[in-house]
Design a protein around this nucleic acid. Sequence first.
DNA 1: ATAGATGCAAACATTTTGCGCCGAG
DNA 2: CTCGGCGCAAAATGTTTGCATCTAT
Lengths: 139, 139
Amino acid sequence: MKHLQIEELCAQRGIKLTEQRKTILRVVCEANDHPHVEEIYKRANLKDSKISLATTYRTINLLTEFGLIDRLQLGDGKARYESINDETSNHYHLVNVQTGEIIEFNDAELEELKQRIAKRLGYKLVDYRMELYGVPMEK
Amino acid sequence: MKHLQIEELCAQRGIKLTEQRKTILRVVCEANDHPHVEEIYKRANLKDSKISLATTYRTINLLTEFGLIDRLQLGDGKARYESINDETSNHYHLVNVQTGEIIEFNDAELEELKQRIAKRLGYKLVDYRMELYGVPMEK
DNA sequence: ATAGATGCAAACATTTTGCGCCGAG
DNA sequence: CTCGGCGCAAAATGTTTGCATCTAT
């Protein structure tokens, strides 16, 4: 989603829009990889050298809590982030374990199946984590 | 899987079986929750007060690398562990976000689907992480 | 006998927090 | 003007590591 749209959502929720927050939000929205906080901090500093790491963490946490950006835990110990997607965009990840590359994908069947499984177990799904780790098939 | 079976596998792989390692392995195999390292360390110390936290970490990492126990990252910052399962047992997790309870489940359809998705993307699946987070449905 | 495992404490990496100053609403 | 965000440095948390000693094979 575009950063301006998300700024709009921030305003609606009463989140004070400081320069730092706008810059950090922009960095996350412009990223098409899945940067971790240190990386977001670096990129934010290229735009505004006065942003601290602490503020980066605080902003990222704030935006995550409000559901305005998504946190990924890909098992390397650092949380990675991406801007929230529109309904139609890719929401699952496959990690190429040889290169670390993250491939996004969609799957309607999976979408439906996870709901069905949760229901079968007597739960309403509030979140999920589903990542595949693979090596490229030769040829 | 029983700890004696896993000890057998350790021997086959040339892993030196010290008292500490046997104790830690036993703790993981006897657990039916999914303890994190600090908890494994505590339980191991009840059996043998001379096991250090460092050794607990080293052993857990060793066993994980050899595929003799499984690491779960449930997003709370600490890795959790479980002993490896036999082919037929449950291998997916649903977390009750209200209580932290972990429900294990199986799903043949999911099993097949994840393989199919990886293949479609041109990858051979080497690992996966799939967790559901939910709240109990009322009634 | 000896390669490798242990315990301890210090180091690390990531993330959080206390505090006095500053800026958006 | 005021509440809350900011930067800084310190702390907290989870995990790893260097080193001298000990132990399973």
